[in-house]
Design a protein around this nucleic acid. Structure first.
Lengths: 206, 206
DNA sequence: TCATTTTTTGCGTGTCACGCATATTTGCGT
DNA sequence: ACGCAAATATGCGTGACACGCAAAAAATGA
């Protein structure tokens, strides 16, 4: 199943995606040419376009990959767990910081975060990021349909759930990034968001 | 306030946006050059880029414009109307078919719908459409914050509501377009979607 | 009517996506 | 271990595109 061929392909794709992010965070989006990314990944410029059809897509690749795991995580959840508890859990699983971030020395890390923020603010990238979310949402909807025994073709329900869940995560992450010195951990924000959504987002008392 | 200058500008923008959609639906996305769009709108190719920074943006313009009106519609709603009723109403207002669609003869209309479907399926356009939704969502969140007396800076609530409402509309529209011979009118689908969301999307009994 | 500001236009430049043909690498049966 | 077929990487060429810059044209207000 997982021959050398596929593994090498996945590695090349990952290398290109990582190089794209790395260079963009370092220099800014439009100071990076496709040629640079290809060089950093050790392949020809032409090969870049065999993997990604645009610079933006390469940068968004990691994001897409992570998002897709949410749907996979949901399928792994015990079948008797209530839907919204399972969704919350699946989402939370995606937000354990990876080792490559954890191991970063503090001054470098600060600089890195600044660069990442600039990258996320880049208008040319937002579209691609959103598209990645949309793709992941489709997977999530399928998983929800399975779990709840609803039908993607006839019921709006699974797509509504998937969209609401994606929105909850997105809003929580945004809230987290927007607050300069985050007093609230991302896990709590995500949990809160899911709780509110599952409660039907009632208007607060005035 | 609304001098000849601004009016002409708005007209040119609308003409370009409309021409972009029209040609794309007719011929397919990559059989349309920027030059064609400019010509159809009676403007130089260079001017096109004074209004839109990409072909995709031009096509998504009408979508963005309509989406922004939802936030405006919400502000027009009576202040004593319950939030979710107001949201549903504001969304429904955007879906009264325009005269240019209403007046279309049936065979042409069918062909048109097919073209529109192809257009919406175009990967190169999805990102831009989603970005438009994101922009509109920000406006909607602001309107929700106003109406509910919550704070955009500290509460996730208004953004959650805006995101959930946008999702409800998007899912309903998608459901409508996906069903070949729509037995369910779009108004009912939207109402249903909002009802489900406002109820907290409870898992259906199995 | 005239000066100022805004908009449109033409041109040049650097980048990019992608088709096509060729060289290289990988998988697999023998 | 070997060699063939399929998959993959590369080089080159082409058409399209975004955008900066400066000049022309149009609109506004006095």
């Amino acid at each position: 199943m997982t021959g050398l061929r596929e593994r090498k392909k996945a590695e090349t794709r990952a290398a290109l995606g990582w190089a794209a992010i790395h260079l963009t965070v370092e220099r800014g989006y439009d100071n990076v040419r496709v040629e640079d990314i290809a060089e950093a990944a050790g392949v020809s410029p032409r090969t870049f376009n065999n993997y990604f059809s645009s610079k933006a897509e390469a940068i968004a690749f990691r994001h897409l990959d992570r998002s897709l795991r949410t749907a996979a995580a949901l399928r792994e959840r015990p079948a008797d767990e209530p839907l919204w508890a399972a969704l919350t859990g699946a989402a939370l699983e995606q937000f354990t910081p990876g080792p490559e971030v954890e191991a970063m020395p503090s001054p470098v890390h600060t600089q890195w975060v600044t660069g990442v923020r600039a990258m996320l603010a880049e208008p040319a990238l937002q579209g691609e990021r959103l598209r990645a979310v949309a793709v992941a949402e489709a997977e999530l909807a399928a998983a929800v349909a399975e779990r709840t025994g609803t039908d993607l073709a006839t019921d709006m329900y699974p797509r509504l759930v998937a969209a609401a869940a994606s929105a909850a995560v997105a809003v929580a992450v945004r809230h987290y990034l927007d607050s300069a010195a985050p007093p609230t951990p991302i896990e709590r924000l995500i949990t809160d968001a899911f709780t509110q959504v599952a409660a039907g987002l009632p208007a607060p008392p005035r």
